[in-house]
Write a protein that binds this DNA or RNA. Structure first.
Lengths: 193, 193
DNA sequence: TCGCGATCTTGATATAGATCAATGCCGGCG
DNA sequence: CGCCGGCATTGATCTATATCAAGATCGCGA
């Protein structure tokens, strides 16, 4: 059950059997049906969820009722809880399953335990955070300056497997364009080549 | 000389005299004239710079030669180096001083030392990273969906002191709009109220 | 203090993309 | 197996913002 997570971590640093036991003891497993929400249950501050199987997405709904996808999360990705999202934000935050999925949940306590006990975990976590920060900067600049078509091409090139897997209207939502526009872009491109 | 940084950190966790000495020993001081660049010198992997006085900005120049401001950094902010920016990115990255400034530079070695030696530093660093990640998500969604005017209003509300301090064309660059458009927005609003 | 380059403003036009509306398509549910 | 509802496509407009082009104004440096 925990194998996908172990594999993922072992690509980043070596994992002893003790480490594995420690990890298994702090994550909890959960199955999600297609369309099901991953809600924050109780008061446990969740750090994130590791997608062992399937496909999730996180998104917000703005005050005009429109949905904006923040992140896609296929197997071997982390979806982070919006722990600390601006409290005065009018938008509401959701995570749900695009396909039937299995996730491993980690709360803050567990995370701190691993930071402390598992050698390599802290550095690896930190590296991941940093990498993501850079990706976000890139996305910001991209969204501010590239055209719809450029953003689409970029996405296709960077995440071909995700592009092939999500419905078009969700991709449009991620890219910040309407489904109609995305459809037209695709048509133009299919003609061109 | 290090006081601004000590003050900053002490608002986050207590700092002993030993801690202060450790910090002082790993950061280096530098003065920047208006318009001067903060370049990566030598091979030392820099983590970031703390702005003790003045005002910096980080920005990229895209392949069309246009400048896009990523971050403004007034006193008591960190500017992070793009440590790990996508290597295949065509854009070039810069940091320079908008006003005469003083910065405290920290490299990776120093950072790791503090992570290890100064209690509270690691947690505080982590908290900062997290907060910034959230801010970036917000900015992404904002840039994808809000109008130019909404983005402007938002910025004014969130960072009034920065808005008052930077030239308009830089604010326009940060917001991803042209100086002309920003000028028109301001005119409309001054009329309205 | 003067003058010139940088910055800001204002106007006219062009255009990418949104919106509104209709039609077609296909896949799962009864 | 057939029908219905979400999804994609296509077309016709509309609108926000970019772009191009002059002026106007400000402020710094000689």
């Amino acid at each position: 059950m925990y194998e996908p997570l172990f594999d993922y971590l072992e690509q980043r640093f070596p994992l002893s059997d003790d480490d594995k036991a420690a990890i298994a003891s702090v994550v909890s497993h959960r199955t999600l049906k297609k369309g099901e929400f991953l809600l924050r249950e109780g008061d446990t501050a969740r750090v994130g969820a590791f997608v062992a199987k399937g496909f999730l997405r996180s998104y917000v709904i703005d005050n005009k009722g429109k949905e904006h996808i923040i992140q896609f999360a296929p197997e071997n990705w982390w979806v982070s809880d919006k722990s600390g999202m601006n409290p005065d934000t009018t938008a509401s935050f959701f995570i749900d399953a695009i396909e039937e999925s299995e996730v491993l949940l980690m709360d803050l306590t567990g995370h701190l335990t691993l930071m402390d006990k598992v050698p390599g975990y802290a550095k690896s976590f930190q590296a991941g955070i940093q990498k993501r920060a850079t990706a976000k900067d890139t996305r910001i600049i991209n969204s501010l300056t590239a055209t719809a078509e450029e953003r689409y091409d970029d996405f296709i090139k960077t995440y071909p497997s995700i592009a092939a897997r999500v419905p078009q209207h969700m991709l449009a939502s991620y890219l910040g364009i309407t489904p109609e526009t995305l459809s037209r872009i695709r048509k133009l491109q299919s003609r061109k080549r």
